[in-house]
Amino acid sequence: MAEETQAIDPDGDPYWAGAAEGELHYRKCAACDAAIFYPRSICPKCGATDPAWAVSKGEGVVYACTTVHRAPPAFADNAPYTVLLVDIDEGFRMMGGLANNGEGVADIAIGDRVAVTFQDGPDGRPAPYFTPA
């Protein structure tokens, strides 16, 4: 699974460091108040640079979801599995998976409330996943 190893770069480092501590980090623009995700060095709304880092409560609503039946090779053992887009309460959207490959979750649907939890991703590093709230 070496090819699935996530890059660590200066742009994303605080995010992954946060995930390792069980916290969902995003950035917030001091100039226009936009919540910025994925985290980046410039505000995509107003163009202000170096927005501050912030910690999300990690709760939100499912915006879109799909269950993957034909998985990329590195993920084939887990299929079928569900991928979500979640609108986080602080005002940003992110992708996530269902925690524990959806074990114990009868159904998940658009509009459901979910909460973040952290588990090891495919490269062994902790990453955010979601469970029904």
Partner: peptide, 17 residues
């Protein structure tokens, strides 16, 4: 192929084809 660099690192763990 699932990219895992730059912006893609935030989607890469979830195996979206």
């Amino acid at each position: 192929q699932i990219r895992n660099d730059l912006g893609y690192q935030y989607e890469a763990p979830y195996g979206l084809p």
